[in-house]
Design a protein around this nucleic acid. Structure first.
Length: 898
RNA sequence: GGGCCGUUAGCUCAGCGGUAGAGCGGCCGCCUUACACGCGGUAGGUCGUAGGUUCGAAUCCUACACGGCCCACCA
């Protein structure tokens, strides 16, 4: 016998090890039909999983288990991502705590510490995924930086190199002075920050007035090499071509005319700092201006900034420049000026645009097939509303900077001959123009140009997203023509959050198309972010982070999963509240107890179910629940097929609780507590069928509890499967649809509700059984209620119910009106007639409002003429019912006297 | 500056062309032998605003307002 309440811990442990040993989620290439294949978005090895991972992986598990349940083999590939900058930063923080840094340690030692950390982190993460119940194919665990994946990376780089799609170029890149590396454009986030706009006077070299420029970054003036004005700006007519004297530096700079300058902004004169601003860099190219680099990659001022500033941080230099300008009389004004600042997506520090030599991937050519794929429907996003932003991003794409000046990652497989380039190649790599690299993984033996034999490898590593972009095929050991690749690729579905749509999804599509000629996955489910209960993003600094493990310990994994899933409407963020987990925990308990109830009523192990049901013995509630069950199966399946698990979860929740437990089981008790064995067997058959099927449908959402309960139920269902996922999806043919049962149950339910409401409002003691006399009504309704008097008696707690042909109201009665009938309830001594009058008046008011609304509708000529016939008929019968109800209520009130 | 999404009961959200729903919270009453992680009852919305389409609109269209997000090189 089951415990009284669901105790999740032991159940979870039991089934976790069962699944691991079962091989249920393992597929072998070439065996059977092609499986449903999903690759996990590999979590970074930076620590533990958060609740966002919980959502992402639960969703995948739902789809995977749903497919498995429907009989299709599945292969869900687990793995982790080395995480580049993010992971290196974690390690650097650890080192700092030990008063160390990576340079003190050296590349070798640093990397071996990284490996150790990664190993530990991987096992934590994979363990947590298992704890979440994820049906992963553990035999296929991959890591973006293991040997097989390294081979994929090298091959991808080689193909891109050979196609001329990867190149080394001198560009202005987004530089993070904190992380010490270049970043791609999409790794820069923009934040609105408080700042100032300074107006600085640049006098003319000939002693005339010159120009005033506006800037938010005064420290960069030390690197100015021009001032630009719009040639159409009347104020500055004739200024272009003149020479100005740069304050503090004393250098002479030219004024150039450039259409880029917006005359309406600031003073209309723009200081040009080509080495530290991307727009200025472009202006400089157009006008052949020189570059003066005043900020170095470590964020400090260079010698070129002048002796007074050299070595100062950017921030300190700003203060000093402002002060110096002020005392020298060049500062014309300053005002508060909030503006957006680009910051590093990993550390949040302001990005410094710097010019250096980096590796890039030409994107335009890669994007074209990806655009085609989404336009032709070969690649679909869910919800569909993400298609447009995705498409537009692809069509405006710019080259991707893939080199990173960190150590943790795939080293760029390019080597340089020291003899050809000189010793500088070893130390000053990023400043060496046009270095000619040789593509090689292990290093070439001799230089094709000079025959030299000393080579140095490119010191940089690839952007972590480069290896991520290959993930859907690298996990199957592409470029090897492995059986796995052949069988499992392309994959079936990708599930991920919208925040990495560009960073990851788009790049997988592009790389997949370029390198394998196929869309790596035809469907992509985009989910939202898990936020705190007020809709705020979770962050450590706000202290609103929810730890999924704590939630699992406290409420159970199924409760956590279900509460996330039932809120995971397509593409929407989820406001996470502990209260919603409580609700799901309660649901799990409801499921547990309803199964317990069913089991208590199954005396012997035999194959109960729809197949062995004597249909001739079914009564109203049986036919009704089977009809509802049939509809629920259809709705849940339809929603799951459309990748909308929340709608499916909602349908199942409502069915199990509100229909099966609150109505069916209550009515089932009548026969179960009786002595008619064949009747009991009918109920048992229905209960086992409906509950068993519901457990199966719920399994993708709540895998643990459903395994446990199904295991307990299956001896009574004639089932042998070791796991519920092998049991198949429930099905019920159209012959089980039953409009009559639906209609009749509606009458029963309406009547029961009316009687219960009457009892409660008149404070009839719950334990007291009351008598009811019905009057009026259609013959069919009367017949139904008399046939199913047992339902009314049980659910409304009636001692008896009789019908008065004459419609005589017993004295001292309260009256309920439902289903076109009156129900008189004699309540001598219990009833308070004042209260009864109030209650009736309230009901009359409601009925009157219904009547007037409906009469307006059915008297509307346009409605009658143009609305579909079925609609008109339905409105008419609704009107009749409301009229009838209104009449009965009024009559009753009249009898009571007002 | 573009684009996307949202605005429905006190809170969090479903519904997306036929007289407004759920969960939580509130209130009233119940330990009715599966479940107090429960049961019954009940209050509470002119569905952001203004127009339009339609016999009929929370649901479709157009503006606007207010949130949020994404993209964009405005000092």
């Amino acid at each position: 016998m089951l415990e009284k309440a669901y105790a999740h811990q032991s159940v979870e442990e039991k089934w976790t090890s069962f699944w691991r040993a079962s091989g249920l989620f393992h597929a072998e290439p070439g065996v059977g039909e092609k499986p449903f294949v999903v690759v996990i978005p590999p979590p970074n090895v930076t620590g533990a999983l958060h609740v966002g991972h919980g959502l992402d992986n639960t969703l995948q598990d739902v789809f995977v288990r749903y497919q498995r349940l429907s009989g299709r083999p599945v292969c869900w590939v687990p793995g982790t991502d080395h995480g580049g900058i993010a992971t290196q930063s974690v390690m650097e923080r650890q080192l700092k705590a030990e008063k160390l840094n990576r340079h003190l340690l050296g590349r070798e030692k640093f990397l071996s510490r990284m490996q150790a950390w990664t190993k530990q982190c991987k096992s934590t993460i994979l363990g947590q995924l298992e704890r979440l119940g994820c049906g992963l194919d553990w035999s296929r665990e991959s890591f973006t930086m293991d040997e097989d994946r390294a081979e994929s990376v090298h091959e991808a780089f080689k193909i891109l190199w050979e196609k001329g799609l990867v190149y080394r170029g001198e560009r202005m890149v987004n530089w993070c002075v904190h992380c010490g590396t270049a970043l791609s454009d999409i790794e820069v986030e923009f934040e609105e920050r408080k700042g100032h706009l300074w107006h600085i006077h640049y006098p003319s070299a000939d002693g005339s007035r010159g120009a005033v420029v506006a800037t938010t970054r005064p420290e960069t003036m030390l690197g100015d090499t021009a001032v630009a004005v719009n040639p159409k700006d009347a104020r500055y007519k004739g200024l272009a071509g003149k020479t100005l004297r740069l304050p503090l530096a004393g250098r002479e700079i030219k004024v150039v005319g450039d259409e880029y300058v917006d005359s309406d902004f600031g003073t209309g004169a723009l200081k040009v700092t080509p080495a530290h601003d991307p727009n200025d860099f472009e202006i400089a190219k157009r006008h052949g201006l020189s570059l003066v680099t005043v900020i170095s990659p470590d964020g400090r001022m260079t010698a070129a900034a002048g002796a007074a500033y050299e070595g100062l941080s950017r921030e300190a230099a700003r203060d000093k420049v402002v002060e110096d300008l002020k005392s020298a009389g060049f500062l014309e004004g300053v005002k508060d000026y909030p503006h957006s600042v680009g910051v590093c997506y990993r550390c949040g520090q302001a990005i410094e645009p710097l010019v250096s030599w980096q590796w890039f991937v030409r994107m335009e050519e890669l994007a074209k097939p990806a655009i085609l794929a989404v336009d032709s429907g070969r690649f679909r996003l869910h919800p569909e509303s993400w298609t447009k932003p995705y498409r537009e991003w692809l069509s405006g794409i710019r080259d991707w900077c893939i080199s990173r000046q960190i150590w943790w990652g795939h080293r760029i497989p390019v080597w340089y001959c020291v003899k050809c380039h000189g010793e500088r190649i070893k130390t000053d790599f990023h400043q060496v123009a046009d270095a000619r690299g040789v593509l090689s993984v292990e290093g070439p033996s001799s230089c094709g140009v000079c025959g030299g034999s000393e080579f140095v490898q490119d010191p940089d590593v690839l952007d972590t997203w480069f290896s991520s972009a290959l993930w859907p095929f690298s996990v199957f050991r592409w470029p090897g023509r492995t059986p796995e690749l052949k069988f499992f690729y392309p994959t079936s579905l990708l599930v991920t959050g919208y925040e990495i749509l560009h960073l990851w999804v788009a790049r997988m599509q592009m790389m997949g198309l370029c390198l394998t000629g196929q869309v790596p996955f035809p469907d992509c489910v985009i989910h939202g972010i898990v936020r705190d209960r007020h809709g705020k993003k979770m962050s450590k600094s706000l202290g609103n982070v929810v730890d999924p493990l704590v939630m699992m310990d406290k409420y159970g994994t199924d409760a956590l999963r279900f509460s996330l899933l039932i809120q995971a409407h397509p593409g929407r963020d989820i406001p996470f509240d502990e209260a919603s987990i409580t609700g799901s925990r309660n649901f799990a308990n409801k499921l547990w107890n309803s199964t317990r109830f069913v089991l208590m009523n199954l005396p012997e192990a035999k194959a109960y179910g729809v197949a062995s049901l004597d249909r001739g013995r079914l009564e109203l509630c049986d036919r009704w629940i089977l009809d509802e069950y049939r509809e629920t199966i259809a709705r849940a399946r339809k929603s799951l097929d459309a990748y909308e698990p929340a709608a499916a979860a909602d349908a199942l929740y409502g069915f199990l609780w509100d229909k099966f437990c609150d109505w069916y089981l209550e009515l089932a008790k009548i026969r179960l507590q009786g002595a008619d064995e064949p009747a009991k067997d009918v109920v048992r058959g229905v209960m086992v069928e409906v509950l068993g099927g519901t457990l199966r449908l719920l399994h993708p959402f709540m895998p643990f509890i459903t395994e446990e309960l199904y295991a307990a139920l299956k001896p009574f269902a004639g089932r042998q499967e070791a796991s519920v996922v092998e049991a198949g999806l429930p099905e019920l043919g159209s012959s089980w649809a039953d409009e009559n049962a639906r209609r009749d149950m509606a009458v029963v339910m309406e009547t029961v509700s009316a009687l219960r409401s009457l009892r409660a409002q008149l404070n009839v003691p719950p334990g007291l059984k009351i008598r009811a006399v019905s009057a009026g009504g259609a013959a069919a309704t009367r017949e139904l209620l008399s046939r199913r008097a047992d339902y009314l008696q049980t659910l409304a707690r009636l001692s008896e119910i009789s019908h008065s042909e004459e419609g005589i109201r017993p004295p001292q009665s309260a009256t309920a009106v439902a289903a076109g009938m009156s129900f008189f309830v004699p309540l001598q001594g219990v009833i308070d007639f004042d209260q009864e009058r109030v209650r009736l008046k309230k009901e009359i008011a409601k009925a009157e409002s219904d009547v007037s609304k409906l009469s307006a509708k059915i008297e509307n000529k346009d409605f009658l003429a143009r609305a579909p016939q079925s609609e008109v008929e339905s409105a008419r019968s609704q009107y009749d019912a409301a009229r009838e109800r209104q009449g009965r209520l009024k009559e009753t009130l009249l009898l009571l006297g007002s």
